[in-house]
Amino acid sequence: MPDHIVTGFDDDLGRLRGHVRDMGLRVRCQYNDAMSCVFSWDEDLYEKVLRSDDEVDRSEERVVDFSTQILMLRQPVSVDLREVISALRIACDLERMGDCAEHMVRRVKELPSGVLEDGGILGDMRDSIYRSMLHAGEQLEGTMSSYERRDAEEAIRAWMLDDKLDEAYALSVKGILSSMKNLPEHVKVLSSMLMLVKDVERVGDHATNIAESVHYMVTGRRLKDALPSWAGKD
């Protein structure tokens, strides 16, 4: 696509993308740090995750303000309009992801040490929980990468990673629930873990939304309507 005749328009869109990208970077950092905390507690990392939440919120405000300004000044249509609307939606999803990461580390703080160690209360669930967190992280990486590269196919692939996450998540939930039955005295700890795993699933959910927004932004069509025949609908 050639540049806009009014160069200010292109500058504005560039800055908007920059803000969204920034926000994405922060959230990825935040999530990765949170994931580290779950498996090897670090007090400093915990503080860092809490602090970055403020910055993520400010990033979201910037994206919203800037989008409003572009809508007012440039009256965009078609591709440009989709770009602005998508930026708003992606920022919203990223902000929620940030919240999820924050919840995750808060829960871990409450847990007694060694829950996920070998021989710990949920030692045998460690693997599936780890995998679910990993997949969620991959989804986040994938969708933000598809945003930066404006690649609809990559968005679809990131979207489909949700299947793997769902699998790991289901496994984790099943394991935790059966542990609850077997070890009723640890029900509090186990509920916390359940919540934590739920947060991870939510991260994946938001990443899926972002993938849909990216696809719509690039192609103008809903991702679900554009799935190639080799992808299952559910």
Binding site: M1, P2, D3, H4, I5, V6, F9, P76, V77, S78, V79, D80
Partner: peptide
């Protein structure tokens, strides 16, 4: 058409 309506005409 896209170029014209988005102000990119070139």
């Amino acid at each position: 058409t896209l170029g014209y309506i988005t102000g990119r005409f070139g």
